[in-house]
């Protein structure tokens, strides 16, 4: 969710609430005989409001799990989660008079701080990263399917290379692979290259001689296929410029008819690289939730325990 003009209403409402809460707290703190306490009427009110905000923020998870709920739009829930969740921290600080108290309350306070800070971090990421994703990952796919798409890309590349270089000895025939859906590469006809390379002319495909296809075969099996199977940071194909240079070099070694395939392989490599980038961005985009959600759940649970214990004692 982007922090843009659409958030103005919530931002103004939250600011107004913050000012009211701050004003009330300032008057209360200035007039209370001792320092502000969570157990006083005003302190308790702050506590109830703050915990209410936290509960509302936590209900976003439930709202997401049951998208058919017709209780407000998902976007409104998200904005409420963002702003009221943020507001819960100062309200709870007002509740405790800016003191963390005993063990349970200190743990609660630190967990709340971590929750709100991780939420702010996540909000910043969700504001910034989708733009980065749009620029860097033009061939974005569904994150959960990245592994599957990567396999399909490899198979597509296998087929293309086997079509030109003959069997790569990978166990499955190119034809079998062709029968599977998913490839973007159309079968192409190739003319006989100069230099007397024996090309097996089929109705649609041309196979290069071993000698002519050797550079491509070596490059594909030694570098590109491992990259497609398991992209590694150290590989030069993981870098757009280096990959471009690698394929440019390959083109100089290959006969003209193979240049179309080399271009296809470069496209496949580019897509695979983008998937790697998508994975990275996705991890940033959603990884903070591994902190935010469990800690916020712990805050709700311990907050409930604290409420019962505090009201009792």
């Amino acid at each position: 969710m982007r922090i843009d003009k659409t958030q103005r209403g919530w931002a103004i409402a939250s600011l107004a609430m913050m000012m009211v809460f701050t004003g009330v707290y300032a008057v209360y703190a200035a007039n209370v005989p001792d320092r502000p306490r969570g157990g006083s009427a005003i302190g308790l009110t702050f506590g109830v409001i703050g915990f209410g905000f936290m509960l509302f923020a936590a209900l976003l998870g439930a709202r997401k799990r049951v998208p058919t709920w017709r209780i407000g739009r998902a976007q409104a829930w998200m904005r409420g989660h963002l702003w009221l969740g943020l507001l819960s921290l100062p309200v709870i600080l007002f509740h405790g008079g800016f003191h963390f108290g005993g063990t349970l309350t200190s743990v609660l306070m630190w967990l709340l701080i971590v929750t709100v800070l991780s939420g702010l971090f996540g909000a910043a990421l969700q504001h910034y990263l989708p733009r980065v994703m749009t620029i860097d990952v033009k061939l974005e796919t569904i994150y959960d399917e990245i592994g599957n798409v990567r396999v399909l890309l490899r198979e597509e590349a296998d087929r293309g290379v086997e079509a030109l270089c003959g069997s790569l000895g990978l166990g499955k025939s190119a034809k079998e692979e062709m029968q599977r859906a998913g490839g973007f590469t159309a079968a192409r006809a190739m003319s006989v290259s100069k230099g007397g390379a024996s090309v097996a002319v089929a109705t649609e495909t041309v196979v290069l001689t071993d000698e002519a296809s050797a550079p491509l075969r070596t490059f594909y099996l030694g570098e590109m296929r491992p990259f497609l199977e398991q992209p590694r940071r150290g590989s030069r194909l993981g870098n757009a410029d280096k990959a471009h240079n690698a394929f440019a070099g390959l083109r100089t070694l290959m006969p003209e008819p193979a240049h179309g395939l080399v271009q296809d392989l470069e496209d496949i490599c580019d897509e695979a690289r983008q998937l790697v980038r998508q994975e990275q961005l996705h991890r940033w985009l959603h990884g903070w939730l591994l902190v935010h959600i469990p800690i916020s759940m712990a805050v709700i649970v311990l907050g409930a325990v604290h409420a019962v214990v505090a009201l009792r004692y």
Binding site: G38, G39, H99, G101, G102, T103, L104, T105, H306, V309, A310, Y313
Partner: peptide, 8 residues
Amino acid sequence: PRVYSSGR
């Protein structure tokens, strides 16, 4: 019960 205590 010290864990519930609101402070030392």
